[in-house]
Nucleic acid binder design. Structure first.
Lengths: 148, 148
DNA sequence: TACGAAAATGATAATCGTTTTCATATTAGG
DNA sequence: CCTAATATGAAAACGATTATCATTTTCGTA
């Protein structure tokens, strides 16, 4: 049975205070130390893993390390969307998204894990500001004819 | 303008031969060397980045490094599903999935990037074999009452 | 309140995937 | 065939994460 420690509570509190904000392990220690807490990076990593397993936070694997976000849905019934432009992570409230997951389960027998699934794209705000550049596949550097 | 090199073609060919298979950068060098190619890890990384930008492969960020998979849909209209149990990455053919992306775009103004979006869960085969253990949130190690 | 076993902490070192550096080799156009 | 542009790859650097381990904290119990 785990013990209750100050560091444990501090990490959870910091994540919870960030609400919809996404934060790195390193950023978290710095933040906590700025608040006066004495906490080590190792401990923060340990707590983050625990909190993820307990379902209180999401761990998002990025290209350069992971970041973490508080999740107000410990039951696990939430959807995640990350904007590639501004970096925000949103919890879209969409009935059709829920319906799709049910469909994939029933018709295709794919059991979706919402905790791990992240939709990527442009959020409403960024999509508007986007000067629709960068059509996918335009910056070709490999010739298709070279394919086997 | 990029040059056509043997290593470039070898990397692409190896990925393409794997078809639905997912492979690590390191695995790829080893594979190529086993085939008799003389190729360096650095070059493989460079080619993988190029191929990804050109849309010929997917880069999948895992907890312990990335793995790469050939994509037969250079246009970008494909869906990705990764089984957390067996590790397979599937390209589900589902009209409702396409419809959902359109819905998110029109109703929520979320522009989904299919190349980056990966659904996680259990595939049809693994879902069947799964002895439905590990309900999410059961392995609690943090008390909810400690939340701020 | 003090004791002691179980558990947590945190500085340091180790790990490992990925990127940078830079000297050399290859490519393709003239 | 020459030359500039580009690609290669071994080695070093980098950085996020994990392992190690001596020390400290927690909490049930005497």
């Amino acid at each position: 049975m785990p013990y209750n420690t100050k560091q444990q509570q501090a990490v959870l509190a910091c994540l919870a205070a960030k609400r919809e904000g996404c934060i790195t392990a390193l950023e978290l220690v710095e933040d906590l130390r700025r608040q006066g807490f004495s906490v080590g990076l190792t401990t923060v990593y340990r707590q983050l893993e625990r909190l993820e397993q307990a379902g209180h936070i999401h761990k998002i694997n990025m290209e350069d390390g992971a970041c973490y976000q508080y999740c107000a849905h410990p039951s696990g019934d939430c959807f995640l969307f990350k904007c590639e432009r501004c970096g925000r992570i949103l919890h879209p409230d969409c009935a059709q998204l829920a319906a799709l997951y049910a469909h994939l389960e029933q018709a295709h027998h794919f059991s979706i894990n919402p905790r791990k699934t992240m939709l990527y794209g442009l959020c409403d705000l960024c999509a508007e500001a986007e000067p629709d550049t960068a059509e996918p596949g335009n910056n070709k550097t490999v010739e298709m004819k070279d394919l086997p």
